[in-house]
């Protein structure tokens, strides 16, 4: 499948901001399930580096008074369905590094209980991850606006409501408790022409199964990623894989508008 993507993030500041600095992880890389035909972030001039997880990262600063900061990423990616199994991804860290807890994925008793439920009802590693995916979605209703970008996995579970980011982080937290390396993925999902939802930035998780390697699990949609997914950035949690993360200095309020468009040629 050929997916054409345009992602625009615009921050508008009520009073001019004196300074904005942004980290931008919006560049997908090619691997077994996807081939990047072309891709462009901004005007292509922003300095960049490969971060610790292998994400191609741009950073840009605006150091003069400004009312709006806009980031546009667009391009075309060809995908094939691999039933969620990943091949030839860029790997910078040993698998064991993805057992690390972070502030946003730190488990509490409720997450521990969730992990024990998984242990009781599934035997193989792959089964456990599938069971976990369903359980996470059972326990956390998909409700937009119920959580914030800084909500932790434990908070989302306690709350019982959240978005894909919360599902993915909860999945990572519980999988690590089960001794299975897991990581957070940010990217895009094409819901299909009949899809109820608007296309948007999406997030899911990957778990490591020794016999298969990394396997994707989209708890929010209760499925392993297909050719409708474009994988962009990975990290230990949503902070490390955030598509656009900025710091600005200014007095006024700011508003954020994110527009994502995904078109498919089947």
């Amino acid at each position: 499948m050929k997916l054409r993507i345009r992602h625009e993030t615009a921050h508008d500041y009520e009073a001019p901001s004196a300074s904005t600095v942004q980290l931008i992880r919006l560049t997908p890389r090619s691997h077994g399930g996807q081939r990047v035909r072309y891709w462009r972030v901004g005007d292509g001039s922003w300095p960049s580096f490969e971060d610790g997880f292998g994400n191609w990262t741009q950073f840009r600063a605006v150091q003069r008074p400004h009312g709006r900061v806009r980031v546009v990423a667009e391009g075309e990616v060809e995908t094939v369905d691999t039933q969620g199994v990943l091949r030839d991804t860029r790997e910078t860290l040993p698998v064991g590094a993805y057992l690390r807890e972070t502030g946003r994925t730190h488990p509490d008793d409720a997450i521990r209980a969730l992990a024990e439920d998984v242990l009781r009802s599934a035997n193989t590693e792959l089964d456990r991850l599938h069971t976990l995916m369903q359980l996470v979605r059972d326990k956390v209703d998909w409700v937009v606006g119920a959580t914030e970008s800084t909500t932790t996995a434990a908070e989302a579970l306690a709350h019982g409501r959240g978005v894909c980011q919360d599902h993915a982080q909860l999945f990572c937290s519980a999988a690590r408790l089960l001794g299975m390396p897991a990581r957070y993925v940010s990217g895009y999902f094409w819901p299909g022409e009949d899809g109820r939802d608007e296309p948007a930035s999406h997030a899911w998780a990957e778990g490591f199964v020794p016999a298969l390697g990394w396997v994707g699990f989209d708890a929010a949609n209760r499925q392993c990623p297909t050719d409708r997914y474009v994988r962009v950035a990975i990290g230990l949690d949503s902070f490390a894989a955030a598509p656009v993360h900025g710091v600005h200095f200014g007095s006024g309020a700011d508003s954020l508008a994110v527009t994502v468009r995904v078109d498919a040629d089947q």
């Binding site: 490969e50 971060d51 610790g52 997880f53 292998g54 910078t92 860290l93 040993p94 064991g96 590094a97 057992l99 690390r100 807890e101 230990l236 490390a240």
Partner: peptide, 28 residues
Amino acid sequence: NGEILRAGKVPEELVFKNESWRPEMQGM
């Protein structure tokens, strides 16, 4: 490359679960 971990001379989890280890530095 983590040779000392692969050689089993230093346990992996001692490093990766350590607060002082910074994944952001990998590859630097």
